[in-house]
Design a binder for these strands. Structure first.
Lengths: 127, 127
DNA sequence: AAGGTCGGTCACCAACTGGTTACCAAGGCC
DNA sequence: GGCCTTGGTAACCAGTTGGTGACCGACCTT
């Protein structure tokens, strides 16, 4: 297992468009999970760090959904002790492209999105 | 007003990835609405045709959300009689790019998506 | 005058989403 | 032995989403 830096707790800070952009990929946490897996497999407990407010139930749900739909693979290692790793499948990796495109679009039009929201009730459509 | 063909009732047939793709843009109907507006303004009743199963309430909700977030504009004409037209704003038009990218991705990976779903319980994550 | 179309609103309701809390077994550490 | 970590599951509950059906005024046609 290559040594990669752990996922920082502030990976998704308040200004990151990912959680707020009007695109949804799967459920609430799915796009963030995919993003977390972009640079290699991660363990369940690793994923919880940057997501912060995710409950174990919600994360499990997201992961099960992503696994069921073929975006991530789940591998259990019992080497010396229990370890579960989630990794992107080729399908999941290919999905990062449109996901990133959506994220980049949101970043580019962030100001317009905020302008439109001002004077409204403060929520993106279903977002 | 240029003469454009009316929206066909079968615009979104069962095999069209739009309604099933795991990306969500706003609420359930929003991406379809945006797609319907791609080639020019449409009236409320025009939009109901291709959407088919949408209730007036749901369509209104979608449109209100898209309007609030700056994706579409709503214009009321009382010329001789009441007419309400919805049109894409520049922001809404720009959003078609990542939306189409997502749709194209889903089309390209349609087989894989179906394969993954077989043997599952038949639903895309939150889709 | 009667009925249809247009563009909705309102009340009600069922299903789904997602959060909280408690709980669990297996293994490691002190 | 006792507690922590890991990777969850189960029960409960509140909020949101979205469907149905009734209804509405303004306008047009017959």
């Amino acid at each position: 297992m290559t040594r990669r830096p752990p996922l920082p707790p502030d990976l998704f800070d308040e200004l990151c468009p990912s959680p707020l952009l009007p695109f949804r990929f799967g459920d609430k946490w799915a796009p963030l999970v995919l993003h977390c897996l972009a640079d290699g497999p991660r363990r369940y407990s690793e994923l919880r760090v940057p997501l912060g407010r995710v409950s174990s139930k919600a994360l499990t749900q997201s992961l099960r959904g992503l696994e069921r739909d073929g975006f991530v693979s789940r591998t259990v290692y019992a080497d010396p002790k229990l370890r579960v790793e989630y990794a992107l499948t080729p399908l999941g990796r290919s999905a990062l492209e449109p996901l990133d495109a959506a994220c980049q679009w949101a970043t580019e039009h962030w100001d317009e999105l905020l302008d439109a929201r001002e004077g409204g009730d403060g929520g993106l459509a279903a977002g």
